[in-house]
């Protein structure tokens, strides 16, 4: 859409040093966290149960499961919640908007463990169920932010666009969505980080992930297993938030 742009306009100028520090802070924290955990593991004696868990193959498998679950949940949420938000916005109905937000809020307030386990009882256990539960659970931030972002577009901007003869679809694609994109992306980021955290619960319905380590560690009182699992979840959440933050910054339309 925008072809006539010059490279040096509209960049945020937060001060170079501040920006660098902000960009590097999260990976640094994660690296330190990882290093400390590793050193600590090497300083202690692991028994056979712990050794069965704390090896590369097992860890890679759990991390893969965890990422697959949370990332596909977030992707599905993006695919479902953003169009849903757009559709609700286009109906211009305050009532519908209110009802949907209220329903979504109720969903959000329900404890995640409850959602996952109930769904497993009425349906089945496994990955798909965990995925559905996660999607249902992280739907709200994206939906709400899509609605808010679109509603926050200055009415004068919209009127100018209509007054110049843009069709409703053109107004949506060229004006409303780009202007709402920072808010929508912020919602996606929230729901992604959410999904990483909540995916630990998948272990209760046999859907794998790092939750396995946390729960087993607790049950068997093998704290190294518990701690490594928890540290991995935390590290992944921080790193994903960091990447999402970078994307958000990069994708923000210039001029805002």
């Amino acid at each position: 859409m925008s072809t006539l742009t010059s490279p040096d306009v509209g960049r945020r100028t937060t001060g170079r040093r501040g920006a660098v520090a902000r960009v590097l802070a999260a990976p640094l924290v994660v690296a330190v966290l990882g290093l400390v955990t590793l050193l600590w593991l090497q300083s202690i004696e692991l028994d056979s149960i712990e050794k069965r868990t704390l090896n590369t193959d097992y860890l890679v498998d759990r991390v893969r499961e965890h990422l697959l679950l949370s990332l596909s949940a977030a992707a599905l949420v993006a695919l479902l919640a953003i169009p849903a938000g757009v559709l609700i916005h286009r109906t211009n109905s305050r009532v519908l908007r209110g009802v949907v937000l209220a329903l979504a809020n109720i969903g959000q307030a329900t404890p995640a463990v409850g959602v996952v386990i109930l769904l497993a009882i009425v349906w089945r256990t496994g990955f798909t169920t965990a995925l559905v539960a996660l999607v249902a659970y992280s739907f709200l931030p994206v939906l709400r932010n899509t609605l808010t972002g679109l509603a926050e577009v200055d009415p004068a901007t919209r009127e100018a666009a209509r007054g110049m003869g843009m069709t409703r679809t053109q107004v949506l694609r060229r004006i409303e969505l780009p202007l709402a994109s920072p808010v929508i992306l912020a919602g996606l980021r929230t729901s992604l980080v959410f999904a990483v955290g909540v995916a630990t619960i998948a272990t209760f319905i046999n859907a794998g992930g790092l939750g396995d380590m946390i729960v087993n560690g607790l049950k068997l009182q093998r704290y190294p297993v518990l701690i490594v699992g928890a540290a991995l979840v935390a590290g992944i959440a921080i790193l994903i938030d960091w990447v999402a933050g970078l994307v958000e910054e990069y994708a923000r339309p210039r001029g805002l």
């Binding site: 925008s2 200055d154 004068a156 100018a160 666009a161 110049m164 780009p178 202007l179 339309p253 001029g255």
Partner: peptide
């Protein structure tokens, strides 16, 4: 069409 709030598109040059 010119309106008081101008309504320039803030994300476009």
């Amino acid at each position: 069409y010119v309106i008081q709030q101008i309504g320039l598109f803030p994300h476009m040059t």
